[in-house]
Design a protein around this nucleic acid. Structure first.
Length: 263
DNA sequence: TTTACTGTTAGGAC
DNA sequence: TGTCCTAACAGTAA
């Protein structure tokens, strides 16, 4: 369920279990219709080590010291794990990278929306994609200028990776829910104080999810994530009921009782 | 059997 | 030119 916190948790797993270990083999699974490097290209990593990682928004990078970077995007359903080589692999593993010492990094992606690419330069890649600042790094002014000035729905602004990188449907809904803003509210009409508190809430949410390793059951009970279905009782106000509405083409779960519109 | 889904992107409308 | 919306991508689960 990959947005920024899931990507960051995955990056940390690479950092903890796959860094500075010699790569002994790279294996592709069933990858029809997927955008991945060829087996020959990936074979270039054998004998080398990943020595550093980076993340920008939902984009993960693992690099060898002087060689190319492996860029991984988890798509809609991808995940990364480090497991022992003798462990039975789960279904839908698209790429596995084996390391000296008996561990391997697995890229699992049932829906095949993820992709992997070899790149030379992370900054150039981010520029080329036109990604905005990382949602955890963006400053108050930049957030206000990029998100708070949008003429469309605030929900759509949060989802735009060009305005800020890393927020997806799930955590956009959570941030608006906890800040008390209706997903359809026009961003540029929101008071500056509301934009500032949205920024703070969003940062807190992303940080808290990362702290759990993106294990949702460890998140506080009054978060929307635990009541994300139509008709559920709102945990933040008396008598509120969760409803869903398409905003910018995405299902937007919210509580109309405490999430205010501004038009 | 039908429908929806947490992401990205190309193409079209305004 | 900029901004926004929709459809499409592939596979699974409800």
């Amino acid at each position: 369920m990959p947005e920024l916190p899931e990507a960051e948790a995955a990056r940390q797993r690479i950092e903890a279990g796959a860094l500075n270990r010699t790569i002994t083999g790279v294996f592709l699974g069933e990858v029809s219709h997927m955008s991945l490097p060829s087996a020959d290209e990936l074979a270039g990593f054998v004998g080398t080590q990943f020595t550093r990682t980076q993340r920008h928004g939902k984009y993960i990078f693992a690099g060898s010291k002087d060689g190319p970077w492996l860029h991984i995007h988890l798509g809609m359903a991808g995940s990364l794990r480090v497991v022992d080589t003798d462990e039975t692999p789960p279904k839908y593993v698209r790429l596995s990278i084996a390391f000296e010492g008996g561990t391997q990094l697995l890229f699992r992606d049932p829906r095949k929306f993820g992709h992997i690419q070899l790149i030379e330069d992370v900054e150039a890649f981010i520029d080329g994609k036109g990604l905005g600042p990382d949602a955890l790094q963006i400053g108050d002014n930049a957030f206000a200028n990029r998100v708070g000035t949008t003429r469309g729905a605030i929900k759509s602004a949060l989802l735009s990776q060009k305005k800020l990188a890393g927020v997806g449907n799930l955590w956009a809904d959570e941030a608006l829910y906890q800040t008390g803003i209706h997903p359809e509210a026009r961003a540029c009409d929101l008071p500056t104080g509301k934009i500032a508190s949205l920024h703070g809430t969003m940062r807190d949410i992303l940080g808290a999810v990362i702290d759990t390793g993106a294990v949702y059951s460890k998140l506080p009970e009054d978060w929307l994530i635990h009541n994300r279905k139509v008709g559920a009782a709102c945990a933040r106000c008396d008598g509120g009921e969760i409803t869903v509405k398409k905003v910018g083409g995405r299902s937007s779960y919210h509580c109309p009782a405490h999430q205010m519109r501004n038009d």
